[in-house]
């Protein structure tokens, strides 16, 4: 039981790291990034390539993941989403195009990783970091798990603080509520969008590297599965809120762990989809979602 709690906490932290950036980008600048899963995977992949050449300690690997994720995310924003938003005739078309643009970018990243790894799972076996499992008698806890949980709490807290108190965070929230007002307030939407995409990609990169440490290795195709989990977490908690993403990730992880323990495991995937579906039916804005103020 205690072991399940630990596992759920780790899983939830990973979900949170991954979903947080996606949720913020969706809630503030209105970009639902379908390439987020691939950015997550690709950061770990690049990290894997580097670690293969130089035995690096874990903090450096995480930092590499963060930087790679941020860079790719910004590239996706500048190369795909920005031109789409600039040229799209209306909001709904832009949403669709951003979806497909993200899918295309994701395809490119996935294809490169698949080609190089020949679809064989990759990991950081050369890293100087060694996994230690502490046996506390009633529960086994690894140092990776501790790092993951701490990193998730720290980064989510940081993101929440940034949104709440800094000037650019306020501007971002203004954009989320009303783009026109934000523009009138003198907010440089373009710069902020790049910033949020960088932050979002960085979080995904960290999540990717940590997941790889946790599991030992991941496959190039892991991104899509995570993408769907992140939807579930976001929809559960409510789009664009840090607390929401945290609660959503926690609920998802707990329910999945329960189902995994209670059943054969083949139903686990149904949990996230079922939760998405139920939540959308019962409370489409999520637990913490604010009422959408969309002016016609």
């Amino acid at each position: 039981m205690a072991q399940d709690v630990i596992n759920a906490a780790t899983l939830g932290s990973l979900y949170l790291l991954f979903a947080l950036g996606m949720s913020l980008a969706w809630g503030t600048i209105g970009i639902l990034n379908f390439a987020h899963g691939s950015i997550f995977m690709f950061s770990a992949f690049v990290c894997h390539l580097i670690v293969r050449e130089a035995a690096l300690p874990m903090p450096v690997a995480v930092l590499i993941g963060l930087v790679v994720g941020a860079v790719i995310s910004v590239l996706v924003q500048v190369l795909a989403f920005e031109p789409i938003q600039r040229r799209a005739a209306d909001h709904r078309r832009a949403e669709l195009q951003i979806l497909v643009g993200g899918i295309g970018m994701a395809g490119v990243l996935l294809a490169i990783a698949q080609r190089v790894t020949k679809s064989v799972p990759f990991g950081f076996s050369e890293s100087t970091f060694r996994v230690h499992v502490y046996d506390l008698g009633f529960v086994r806890l690894s140092n990776v798990q501790i790092v993951i949980v701490v990193a998730a709490c720290l980064l989510a807290g940081l993101a929440g603080w940034w949104l709440r108190s800094s000037r650019s965070g306020l501007a971002l929230r203004a954009i989320g509520v009303d783009p026109e007002v934000a523009t009138m307030m003198g907010v440089d939407r373009r710069k902020l969008a790049v910033a949020i995409m960088a932050a979002s990609g960085g979080l995904a990169g960290v999540a990717g590297v940590l997941l790889t440490y946790y599991l030992g290795s991941i496959a190039a195709e892991s991104g899509d599965a995570f993408l769907l989990k992140a939807f579930a977490a976001i929809v559960l908690g409510g789009v664009g809120s840090v607390g929401g993403a945290a609660v959503g990730a926690a609920i998802l992880a707990v329910v999945e762990t329960i189902v995994l323990v209670q059943t054969s495991g083949t139903w686990v995937d149904a949990v996230s989809f079922g939760l998405i579906f139920l939540m959308l039916l019962v409370r489409p804005r999520g637990i913490f979602g604010r009422k959408e103020v969309r002016r016609t």
């Binding site: 190369l79 795909a80 040229r87 005739a89 643009g101 295309g104 970018m105 490119v108 294809a111």
Partner: peptide, 12 residues
């Protein structure tokens, strides 16, 4: 992937 991305961006 490149074709998909390019069309989505430039051929709305």
């Amino acid at each position: 992937g490149v074709i998909v991305a390019l069309t989505a961006v430039y051929v709305p």
